[in-house]
Simulated assay, not measured.
Amino acid sequence: MWTDLGYLGLFLASFLAATIVPFSSEVVLSGMLAAGGDPVLSLATATLGNWMGGLTSFWIGWMGKFEWIEKYLRIPKTKLEKWHRKVEGKEWWISLFCWLPGVGDIIAVILGLLKSNFWVSAVGMLAGKALRYVVWGLVTLEVIERL
Rank of each mutant, 00 (worst) to 15 (best):
M1I: 00
W2P: 00
D4G: 09
G6H: 01
L12R: 05
A13K: 05
S14Y: 01
T19P: 07
P22A: 04
P22C: 02
F23G: 09
F23R: 03
S24W: 08
V27C: 05
V27I: 15
V28G: 03
S30A: 13
M32L: 12
A34R: 02
A34W: 05
G36M: 09
G37D: 08
G37K: 06
D38P: 00
D38Q: 03
D38K: 06
P39A: 06
V40R: 09
L41D: 13
S42L: 10
L43N: 14
T45R: 12
L48C: 10
L48D: 04
W51D: 11
W51K: 10
G53K: 12
G54Q: 03
F58C: 10
G61H: 04
G64K: 01
G64Y: 02
G64C: 14
F66G: 15
W68E: 14
W68C: 14
E70I: 09
E70K: 11
E70P: 11
P76A: 11
P76N: 01
K77V: 15
T78C: 08
K79M: 01
K79G: 02
L80I: 11
H84S: 15
H84V: 11
H84N: 12
H84K: 15
H84Y: 15
K86D: 08
K86I: 07
V87P: 05
E88M: 01
W92L: 12
S95D: 04
L96P: 11
L96S: 13
L96N: 13
L96V: 13
C98E: 00
C98S: 15
C98H: 06
L100S: 02
G102L: 04
G104C: 08
D105P: 10
D105W: 08
D105H: 12
D105C: 12
I106E: 07
I107Q: 11
A108I: 10
A108T: 05
I110Q: 09
L111P: 10
G112T: 08
K115V: 03
S116R: 02
F118L: 08
F118Q: 02
W119V: 02
S121N: 06
V123W: 12
G124R: 11
G124H: 05
M125Q: 07
A127R: 02
A127C: 09
L131Y: 00
R132A: 06
Y133R: 12
V134P: 05
V134Q: 08
V134L: 13
G137E: 10
V139T: 00
T140A: 12
T140Y: 02
E142C: 10
E142N: 13
V143Y: 00
E145Y: 14
R146Y: 09
R146L: 11
R146G: 03
L147P: 02
